[in-house]
Design a protein around this nucleic acid. Structure first.
Lengths: 133, 133
DNA sequence: ACTATGAATAAGATTATCATTATATAAACA
DNA sequence: TGTTTATATAATGATAATCTTATTCATAGT
């Protein structure tokens, strides 16, 4: 699971209208015209938001004559929000997206003599996530 | 937990630089100058992203002389991503944000004679989330 | 005091996102 | 076949997000 995929998912979720649509589809799958009716917003607006969520993998659609039926991809949601925990527990060394950052962090944490912030002394900090403050 | 709060959190997560910062802070808390060094991006850019995440509740900070130390709010993350499951399992009737939508959906699902999509027949659809396709 | 460092904030330009309006496509129905 | 319905797509305008550059502020060290 790479950073871009996560970003796409979070971007899709990070918009009020889309989040409302998602929540409504968690009640039951719906046609576009139903969402239009329930949300009282324009049809193109709904279609566009549906597309964003579909492209993020959150939704599936099924054509039914002129209508289109949209539903949550429940398995996808389950898998990915479980996967997110895994993502955060995974070390940087296993994430290709963090190749360069991992190397530089290693430098920072290994060569404690090398002052990477100009005043130095920074490299001595070594705490677990969230253990501070 | 209301829609706006969720949107703020997801927006904060839905940006590649911020997601990288978050992941790095999950390794250990860091000073801004460390993030600068590891990510190789400008200091104002980092500060601005940190602010967005702090305002979403994801991070905490601690002043240490001229430096600022940033860390994940682990408890917040735990609580909220558990809370998200709850949010999606919760009925619309309990969510103030869905007051109007809930009423209209009730209409849609109760008065099956009332054709809300102009062609009618739509109201007969009644499936569980994700059960389709 | 003076200079350097670490970080936040402000201002500006650029790009992306979102909503609206208009148009296109495709199926149903008369 | 012509019209209505359901949805998608395109084009436009408005708003918001992001990045850069410059500036400010606070603290450290000389």
């Amino acid at each position: 699971m790479n950073t871009d995929t996560w970003v796409k998912i979070f971007k899709a979720l990070g918009e009020p209208t889309r989040l409302k649509i998602l929540k409504l589809l968690s009640v039951r799958p719906m046609y576009v015209c139903e969402l239009e009716e329930v949300l009282q917003i324009s049809q193109p607006r709904i279609s566009q938001h549906l597309r964003v969520m579909k492209e993020a993998g959150l939704l599936k659609e099924k054509k039914d004559a002129q209508r289109t039926f949209y539903a949550l991809r429940v398995q996808f949601l389950d898998d990915h929000f479980a996967g997110m925990i895994a993502y955060f527990n995974q070390g940087l060394e296993n994430l290709p997206d963090f190749k360069d950052e991992y190397a530089r962090l290693q430098q920072l944490d290994t060569n404690c003599d090398v002052a990477l912030c100009k005043q130095g002394k920074v490299t001595s900090v070594r705490l677990k996530a969230g253990s501070l403050i």
